[in-house]
Structures are given as structure tokens and as C-alpha cells.
Measured scan of single mutants.
Amino acid sequence: MTYKLISNGKTLKGETTTEAVDAATAEKVFKQYANDNGVDGEWTYDDATKTFTVTE
């Protein structure tokens, strides 16, 4: 399945996607992506749209 990340960081804003077997796997990928880009904030997940959002 395709999962989307919306980043509302102070230094990184935008969207990216990943293919993953489940939401937990996608979350690990996205949290590593955010960490690699210096984004640390509040996370939410919408199962209906398969979208994670991180806001700093």
C-alpha cells in the first residue's frame, strides 16, 4: 500500500510517499525520514487516507 507523509516542519515542508506492508512499517520509514531531515514534532495518522502528518 502507498502511505503519505505531510511534513509541516520549521525547515522542511512538503509531502512524500512510501510503499509499505502496513502503517507501522510506513511510520518507521517516515520517522527515520523526518529524523534525517531534522524534523521533530507531533505526529498524527489518518487511516482513511493512509496519511501521516508531522507538525513542528
Rank of each mutant, 00 (worst) to 15 (best):
V29L: 12
F30Q: 00
Q32V: 07
K10I: 13
E56R: 04
E15P: 09
E56Y: 09
K31V: 05
E15G: 06
L12Q: 08
G38R: 05
L5Y: 03
T25M: 11
A26E: 00
M1H: 15
D36A: 12
K28G: 07
V39Q: 05
T44G: 07
T51Y: 02
D47F: 07
I6H: 06
K10H: 13
T16A: 10
D22L: 03
T18L: 14
T44R: 08
A23P: 09
Y3A: 01
T16Q: 09
V39Y: 07
K4N: 05
K4H: 13
D36G: 05
Y45W: 02
L12N: 07
A34C: 14
T17Y: 15
V54R: 00
D46G: 00
G9L: 14
K50I: 02
F30G: 02
M1K: 11
V54N: 01
T49E: 05
N37W: 12
A26K: 00
F52V: 00
W43Q: 01
T18Q: 05
D40M: 14
V29A: 08
D46P: 00
T17F: 15
E27S: 06
K50Y: 08
T18P: 00
A20Q: 07
V21C: 13
K10Y: 10
A24G: 08
D36W: 07
T16M: 15
T18S: 04
A20F: 04
I6C: 06
V21E: 11
A34V: 08
Q32N: 08
I6R: 05
K28V: 10
N8D: 09
E56M: 08
G38W: 04
A26F: 00
N35I: 15
D22T: 06
A26N: 01
L5P: 03
E27I: 06
D40A: 12
E27Y: 15
A48F: 10
A24K: 10
T11I: 13
V54H: 03
N35R: 15
Y3R: 00
D40E: 13
G41L: 04
T53W: 10
E42H: 12
N37Y: 11
K50G: 05
E42W: 12
D47E: 14
T11P: 06
G9I: 14
Y45R: 01
S7F: 15
N35F: 15
Q32L: 09
Y45I: 00
T44I: 08
K50F: 09
T2F: 07
T49N: 08
K31R: 15
Y3Q: 02
A24C: 13
E27A: 10
F30K: 00
V39S: 03
V54A: 01
N8K: 11
K10W: 11
W43R: 00
N35E: 14
W43K: 00
G41Y: 04
K50S: 05
I6E: 05
T49G: 04
T53R: 06
V29F: 15
K10Q: 11
K31Y: 06
T2L: 13
D40P: 03
T55G: 05
K13I: 13
Y45Q: 01
E15Q: 09
A34R: 01
A48K: 11
T55V: 10
E19N: 13
K50C: 06
N8I: 15
T16C: 14
E56I: 12
T17D: 04
V54D: 01
T53K: 06
V21S: 12
G14D: 08
T55C: 08
D46K: 03
T51M: 03
T55P: 01
T2A: 05
T25R: 06
T16P: 04
V21R: 12
F52M: 01
K4C: 08
D47M: 07
D40L: 13
E19L: 14
T49R: 05
A20V: 04
W43E: 00
K28T: 08
W43T: 00
Y45V: 00
Y45A: 00
E42Y: 13
T44S: 13
E27G: 06
E27K: 08
Y3D: 03
E27V: 04
F30T: 00
D36K: 10
A23G: 04
M1S: 13
N37E: 06
T18E: 04
T49Q: 05
V29C: 09
D47S: 13
K4E: 04
D36I: 10
E15A: 08
A23R: 12
L12W: 15
N37T: 05
D22N: 09
K13S: 11
M1T: 15
T18H: 06
K10S: 11
A24I: 10
D46Q: 04
D22I: 02
K31N: 03
A23V: 11
T55Y: 10
A48L: 13
G41S: 02
E19V: 15
G38K: 07
S7G: 06
M1V: 14
K10L: 13
L5A: 02
G14F: 15
D47A: 13
K28L: 12
T25V: 06
N35Q: 15
T17M: 10
L12M: 11
Y33P: 00
N37R: 13
N35S: 15
T16F: 15
E42F: 13
K28R: 11
T25H: 12
S7W: 15
G41C: 04
A48H: 10
N37P: 01
D47W: 07
T2Y: 07
E27F: 15
A26L: 01
K31L: 07
Q32E: 10
N37C: 11
L5T: 02
E15K: 07
F30V: 00
E27L: 15
G9V: 13
F52C: 00
E27D: 04
T44E: 10
F30C: 02
K28H: 08
T2E: 08
D22W: 02
T18A: 08
Y45N: 00
T25L: 06
S7R: 05
F52I: 01
A34I: 07
A24H: 09
D36C: 11
G41E: 02
T25F: 07
G14Q: 13
K10C: 14
K31A: 04
T17I: 10
G38S: 06
A48S: 12
V39D: 02
T55L: 08
D22K: 02
F52K: 00
T55I: 11
L5W: 04
A23S: 09
T11Q: 10
K10M: 12
N37M: 14
G14V: 15
V21D: 10
V39F: 11
E56G: 06
A20Y: 02
A23E: 07
N8C: 14
L5I: 03
N8W: 13
K50D: 01
A20I: 02
T18F: 11
A23H: 08
D22M: 02
T17C: 13
A24N: 08
K10T: 14
K31E: 04
T2G: 04
Y33D: 02
A24M: 10
T53M: 09
T53N: 04
K28N: 07
A48E: 13
T16W: 15
G38C: 08
T2M: 11
T49H: 05
K4A: 05
W43M: 04
L5K: 01
T25P: 01
T18K: 04
N8S: 10
N37D: 03
Y33S: 02
L12A: 08
D36V: 09
F30H: 01
D47N: 07
G41T: 02
Y33Q: 04
W43Y: 02
G14P: 10
E56F: 09
K31M: 09
V39R: 02
N35M: 15
S7L: 15
K13V: 11
Y3W: 05
K4S: 06
G38E: 06
K10D: 10
T2V: 13
L12G: 10
G41D: 01
Y3N: 03
A48V: 11
G9Y: 06
D22E: 04
T49C: 04
Q32C: 06
D40R: 12
L12D: 05
D46E: 06
K31W: 06
I6D: 03
G41H: 02
Q32I: 08
T51K: 02
N37F: 11
F30P: 00
K4T: 15
D46S: 05
Q32Y: 04
K28M: 11
A24P: 08
F30L: 05
G41M: 03
V21L: 12
M1E: 13
